[in-house]
Amino acid sequence: MSEPLRIEIMQRETIRPSSPTPLALRSLKLSLLDQFMPISHITLVLFYPGNGNDTDHLGKAKETSLRLKTSLSEALTLFYPFAGRLRDNSSIECDDHGAEYIEARIHCIFSDILRKPETEVLKQLLPAAIDDQVITARDSQLLVQASFFDCGGLAIGVKLSHKIADAATLASFIMCWAATARCSSTEAIISPVFMGASIFPQMDLPIPMLPVDLIQGEPVLKRFVFEAPKISALRAKAISASVPNPTRVESVTALIWKCAMSASRSNLGVPRKAVLSLDVNIRKRLVPALPDNYGGNFQFARR
């Protein structure tokens, strides 16, 4: 389905932490890695199919939305920088400003989207309150959109400022939020640790806070689906003396890059310089290694 979704915004609300942030934690210094991170958002969309036996979709949506907001408020108490605001590219003002929560109704069938996901359609399930190109220090760092489908399905779109978190930190937050929403007394919730500036001290450099446009011209985004047996065969084919045990990511990335370079030479008639960059989680690569609950940006571009 390539046509726009029929989206109805039901409400917008600011969700603040359930408990106020202690005064000692009201200002969090950015690390050097945070400072150099361009202004952008990490995005994620989670899909939850509806219960076929439940016919009261409207009532269920209200109940679920309330649980999402309540648990989000509780999770923000632990991930307090997410409810703060940037200040001069040097720190987060953890003032309990809050996260933006948007509730929407999607007038289509859940399976129509998942049957063949399209990028432009999936973008409509993300919070659209802030354009990445006009983010300011006073904007919310975390935005959530809960989209309820007519059939009872649910999509939760998340946008989190890349200035204060990487993908691993976002994953930790999602797990914490989910555990809080389930109200499980047996499920341990690991508190995050925000002390990146003590590991990578910030520098007094004229580092701009403006968005960085790294792409010249119109970007092209494609989705490729590789079946598990094909990836296994590709890994076996990619084995070499220098890479005796290639990972799935390395094997697939190498194939796509090889094809892209071949297409570039074919179109231009001559080879041109190009750079492939993959972000790597360096928590386990540091000495000593850091636990997964260390929040912030702990990633490095591998080229």
Rank of each mutant, 00 (worst) to 15 (best):
E103G: 10
A104I: 09
R105H: 10
I106Q: 02
C108Q: 13
C108N: 13
F110V: 02
F110Q: 03
F110N: 02
S111K: 15
S111T: 15
I113A: 05
I113M: 13
L114P: 04
R115Q: 12
R115D: 13
K116W: 02
T119I: 14
T119S: 14
E120C: 14
V121G: 06
L122D: 06
L122C: 11
L122I: 12
K123W: 09
Q124V: 01
L125Q: 05
L126Y: 07
D131M: 00
D132G: 08
Q133K: 14
Q133T: 10
Q133G: 15
I135S: 08
I135H: 07
I135Q: 15
A137H: 10
R138F: 08
R138I: 07
Q141Y: 00
L142Q: 03
L143P: 00
Q145T: 05
Q145E: 05
S147V: 00
F148G: 02
F149W: 02
F149I: 00
D150P: 01
D150K: 15
C151Q: 04
C151I: 03
G152N: 06
L154P: 03
L154D: 02
A155T: 05
G157Q: 07
V158Y: 06
K159P: 03
L160I: 01
L160M: 13
H162K: 11
K163I: 00
I164T: 03
I164P: 10
D166N: 07
A167S: 11
T169D: 06
T169Q: 10
L170R: 02
L170T: 02
S172P: 00
S172M: 11
F173D: 04
F173K: 08
I174V: 15
C176Q: 01
C176A: 14
A178N: 11
A178Y: 05
A179T: 12
A179V: 00
T180A: 10
T180S: 11
A181C: 11
A181I: 07
R182Y: 01
R182I: 00
C183N: 14
C183M: 13
S184Q: 04
S185G: 02
T186E: 14
A188G: 00
A188N: 11
A188F: 03
A188S: 12
I189N: 04
I189R: 08
P192S: 01
V193R: 14
V193N: 08
F194S: 04
M195F: 02
G196C: 05
A197L: 01
S198L: 13
I199Q: 09
F200S: 06
F200Q: 05
P201Y: 07
P201G: 09
P201I: 07
Q202F: 10
M203D: 06
D204M: 09
L205P: 02
L205D: 01
I207A: 05
L210A: 12
L210P: 03
V212G: 02
L214A: 14
L214V: 12
I215C: 15
E218S: 13
P219D: 04
L221N: 11
K222F: 00
R223I: 13
R223M: 11
R223A: 08
V225L: 12
F226E: 00
P229D: 08
P229Y: 01
